[in-house]
Design a protein around this nucleic acid. Structure first.
Lengths: 211, 211
DNA sequence: TACTGGCAGTAACAAAGGTTACATAGCTAG
DNA sequence: CTAGCTATGTAACCTTTGTTACTGCCAGTA
């Protein structure tokens, strides 16, 4: 585990901290689609991502959902940290987007490291900063953009995250993450295909040129 | 200044910290409408609110705006803190919603207090937590609600913040903060009036019963 | 008083997105 | 090979929101 920590967090944390993390952290590998956190559940630990990606979703009362952002290598979940302090329930849902490797740190340690290690403090603040900006970006996207622009952005992100030129999702699934409906997404995807930006197939979408 | 600090932050900060804040902070009174921060500007200090309220807005490239949330007594601006560390420009606009009293703390002190005072750390984390949740709520509102629901919520908030049963804004201004257009807002307001929830007048809206 | 500028009311229309319904195309288990 | 399931394509229609245009109204002031 030390290996992975050094590789991914060595430039941020001093050796002492890395060692402490390695001592109390648990190494976890989860497959794509694995649900890491549900809305309303209590938080047991804080994840440090080693590889892969996790998507963070928001639900409304009717069960509709909306993709907020992805966590990637080197990220952690501010929402988690935030909840640890308040001992509150999770406001979001977290699902592995790809096969993902992460280290779970028990939340009790957080408080201690925060006073002990400046590097840890900076990491936590930095993480909050990043997350706030991602949320801002999400708001921009919903408030100021049309569905076709949002869809385009979605496809770009998805293919980047999955390091794959094809999106292996049904239209139904895409509609869910954008909080739209299947018919609308099919319609817009067709438009994108006619523009030569993508090619549609059953169960996957091939990306030709999104710019 | 010590007086105000103790009253509003005494339950959070020990006396030592209060004294330090009083030493380096500057006391500020700003009138409603005063622009405290513009998008793209660099951040000089961090505000601690004593009384009044500040509205936080997001702009898009075309100059359209959107109300994100309000800061009230006892709040601070996480966005500011976040920017301090990264030395980045402001992503948001801040305007006094009412006459507001606040204490500005130079950002250099932040880092020091963060290691020195546990109470300060908790305050900062707590603040991030609150802000993230407000952003989530904003996203919910935009993504899952119709304009009429958003308008209703807007009116409720506004009258609470201003401690006033009338909203002293033009339809144009309201449209701006909800990122809609004047005609739409007029239309919906009329509908609310017909439902007996409000009464419309020139330059202000009287609240009858929003529930 | 008459003029002016900003505000609000309303109608008519346009566009985006959501809904319903149905057809068809691929896949897969038997 | 085929029945049945799931994913996708498409049309027709509805609702919500945005746009344009024009009206009247009020307040301040020349």
């Amino acid at each position: 585990m030390i290996q992975e920590l050094k590789q991914n967090y060595g430039h941020l944390f001093e050796d002492d901290l890395i060692n402490e993390i390695a001592q109390v952290g648990t190494y976890k590998e989860v497959p794509a689609g694995f649900k890491l956190m549900e809305i309303g559940s209590y938080i047991k630990g804080m994840p440090l991502l080693i590889s892969g990606a996790i998507k963070i979703l928001r639900d409304d009362k009717e069960g509709d959902e909306l993709l907020l952002y992805y966590l990637e290598k080197g990220d952690t979940c501010s929402m988690t940290m935030s909840c640890c302090l308040g001992q509150t329930k999770s406001e979001i849902r977290a699902i592995a987007e790809t096969d993902t490797v992460l280290i779970m740190v028990p939340i009790q340690k957080m408080e201690m490291w925060t006073s002990k290690y400046k590097s840890w403090r900076n990491f936590v603040f930095e993480s909050y900063h990043t997350r706030l900006n991602e949320m801002l970006h999400t708001i921009d996207s919903i408030a100021f953009n049309n569905m076709d622009q949002r869809l385009l952005e979605y496809l770009k992100n998805k293919s980047r995250i999955n390091e794959d030129n094809s999106i292996r999702n049904t239209h139904q699934e895409i509609a869910g993450e954008l909080h739209s409906s299947r018919v609308v997404i099919s319609r817009l995807l067709k438009k994108l295909e006619k523009l030569g930006k993508i090619e549609l197939h059953r169960n996957y979408i091939e990306i030709i040129d999104l710019d």
